[in-house]
């Protein structure tokens, strides 16, 4: 599915300084019943964001006007649990283009890359610096430079590099997806299929 190309993103960030944020929190299972990829942003962090009578929980960060932006900051082991790609769709649909954490769960990281959300893994120390800077001043901007694989805290100029493999980087820069690649090598795959033992 097509997504916006990613190059350099400059934005404020929304801080969620909790560890082990699982995909059941990002989007609870009861909101997985759609058959099209629309409207998942409304259910992002549903049970942390809304009371059971659907009134907003004032203390949750997405309900605090002072925080906004295209970057979501999460604690260690972000996106653990279920493989539901709906979690990455919800993050994207809400308007985030990048999640910054000190550690990502595997499947969530892969899902993000497949739907146009850039997972940026930084050191625990750098993440803490960003959390602190954002908490002190919500207008603090970050620059996520994908071509240079660099994240910069613009207020201080401090930066760190981040990893992404060359293939996925090229996909994100150009808005390509894996299916295009696979369809292109279909002949090789079929030759391979003829020789599998099972």
């Amino acid at each position: 599915m097509a997504y916006d190309k990613f190059n350099i993103l400059t934005s404020t960030a929304v801080p969620l300084p909790l560890e082990n944020v699982d995909t059941d929190q990002i989007i609870p299972a009861r909101f997985l019943k759609a058959t099209e990829r629309v409207g998942f942003g409304d259910s992002l962090f549903r049970d942390w964001r809304y009371n059971q009578d659907n009134t907003p929980k004032e203390d949750f960060v997405l309900n605090q006007d002072r925080f906004s932006g295209k970057i979501l900051l999460g604690g260690k082991n972000f996106g653990s649990g279920s493989s539901r790609e709906h979690a990455a769709w919800a993050v994207y649909d809400y308007g985030f283009r990048c999640v910054v954490s000190s550690f990502f769960a595997d499947i969530f990281r892969g899902n993000c890359l497949n739907v146009g959300v850039l997972p940026v893994q930084v050191s625990a120390e750098f993440l803490q610096k960003i959390f602190d800077a954002t908490a002190a001043d919500e207008t603090t901007e970050l620059e996520i430079n994908l071509p240079e694989q660099k994240i910069t805290l613009l207020t201080t100029g401090e930066s760190e590099s981040f990893d992404i493999n060359g293939y996925k980087k090229n996909n994100m820069l150009n808005g390509f997806d894996d299916i295009d690649y696979l369809l292109n090598i279909k002949k090789d795959i079929e030759t391979f299929a003829e020789n599998t033992p099972l």
Partner: peptide, 9 residues
């Protein structure tokens, strides 16, 4: 386990 984009692949 895989995501839905991968299911499509």
């Amino acid at each position: 386990g895989i995501g839905t984009s991968e299911v499509e692949m």
